[in-house]
Design a binder for these strands. Structure first.
Lengths: 198, 198
DNA sequence: AAAATTTTTAACCGGACGGTTCAGAACCAG
DNA sequence: CTGGTTCTGAACCGTCCGGTTAAAAATTTT
């Protein structure tokens, strides 16, 4: 089996560069030329390796969910519902305001609303956010079974409230609101959860 | 003073059509052709009357703020801080889920993140949102003076929390989450405010 | 060294983009 | 009816878009 000319780029490293471009500029605000120059990949290779702009975006979102949103999975593993909320809100603020990454959250900035031809991008991102909400709702359901949360609590409503806050924080972060201000909001939100649940 | 050929469109009516297009598709997702066909205005007239895509967008945002966000001004006029919060959160949900208008909120969908050449659009929208937040903060400051809110309350933090929730609701609405679900979230948020303030 | 394979470079599609020009149609005042 | 003015419709800019092609360069295998 022959080898062929070696690549001048690392597939995963280039993908991480693509994450940052889409994160900063959104799907429609990003051109293939933006991508190739940031990734250090020439156009034919981009199409051969990643399959085009739309396919690359899907891989970017998957990579982002796995690496930049790992804190959400970690939060779900906390032993109590209020622990889940505390950890998620706090780590969310950290993730939204890292100075070595773009501000805000890819899954919102990537394409909250798109032209008619790219509606599928917006829907794809919306669906992935709602999937995250469902994970929290399931976690709260388990907390009710565990007698950790009151049986009167509405797990779906609590999860929705949590995600609404997280999305609002992301919008704020994208606008340049600083980490300290967001942390203050997270603290307030956590107090609200304590008042609502316990 | 001569008259000249009359226009085939009404300037304000056409502007309202433009509002809906930008609202649905965002600044970068909207082409001038999208605008002309939705507005019933031909290209030279669009440039003569509105000055081009970027200038039109500014007029669109101003029109939107005045007409579709009037409820925010009305909410600020409520006699108590909790009344402000109640009215704003409830009317916000209504505005985000009207079936005769696009879902969500123009000032977020319009351009949360843009390509490098359109960063000014994103910043313009962000600044207008933060101006709204400041209006709520000022209102809460007055509530403290009025002994309506505790002197220990942080008006800036409360206003930020309120806007974060409103922005998160807008993201949810854009994703297609229904009015009833958002109303439930608004109720929860209001309860949180009551617990935090009173 | 030669054959086979893969990636690079650069040129090149057709089409859509934002924006403009210009002839002519439709109105007004005199 | 005529001259001045304003808007319409369509053609037309140069540029960039996402995506492709063809040949040259860099490898491994034989």
């Amino acid at each position: 089996m022959p080898g062929g000319r070696p690549r001048t780029f690392d597939e995963d490293e280039a993908l991480e560069r693509a994450v940052e471009v889409f994160w900063r500029q959104g799907y429609e605000g990003t051109s293939v030329t933006d991508l190739t120059s940031a990734m250090g990949v020439n156009k034919p290779s981009l199409y051969a390796v990643y399959g085009g702009k739309a396919d690359l975006f899907r891989r970017v979102v998957a990579h982002y969910a796995e690496h930049e949103m790992a804190y959400a999975q970690a939060a779900l593993a906390e032993p109590t519902a209020l622990g889940v909320v505390h950890r998620f809100l706090n780590d969310n603020v950290i993730a939204l305001t890292r100075d070595d990454k773009p501000l805000g959250c890819l899954s919102i900035q990537g394409g909250l609303s798109c032209s008619t031809e790219n509606q599928d991008v917006a829907q794809f991102l919306a669906a992935s956010r709602l999937a995250g909400e469902k994970a929290f709702a399931d976690r709260f359901r388990r907390a009710i079974q565990d007698r950790d949360l009151s049986a009167e609590a509405d797990p779906d409503a609590l999860a929705r409230f949590l995600m609404v806050i997280s999305e609002g924080q992301a919008v704020h972060a994208a606008a340049g609101v600083g980490r300290e201000a967001l942390q203050q909001t997270a603290t307030i939100a956590e107090a609200a959860f304590k008042a609502l649940c316990g």
